[in-house]
């Protein structure tokens, strides 16, 4: 599973952090979310797919 976060779209809405806290984070002083793991283990798939679905600006894509 390959996860990408488009930082030019991200507005730090934070939905991804709630859906997949092991894969995404929000830095205190950054205007965009942080992708902690761009190849997360398979057991994170459900959370990551939900994060992508919930992102209000469609900044997350999941491949494979």
């Amino acid at each position: 599973m390959k996860v990408t976060l488009d930082e030019s779209l991200c507005e730090a809405h934070g939905e991804c952090v709630l859906a997949a806290p092991e894969v995404f984070d929000l830095d205190d002083d950054s205007d965009v979310a942080v992708l902690l793991d761009d190849s997360p283990p398979e057991d994170q798939r459900e959370n990551v797919v939900m994060a992508a679905r919930l992102c209000p600006v469609a900044a997350i894509t999941v491949e494979d």
């Binding site: 507005e11 730090a12 205190d28």
Partner: peptide
């Protein structure tokens, strides 16, 4: 929208 939301959302960061 992006400029306004960018500034105002600094009052809503996790910190």
């Amino acid at each position: 929208h992006k400029r306004n939301r960018g500034v105002i959302s600094r009052g809503f960061t996790p910190k």
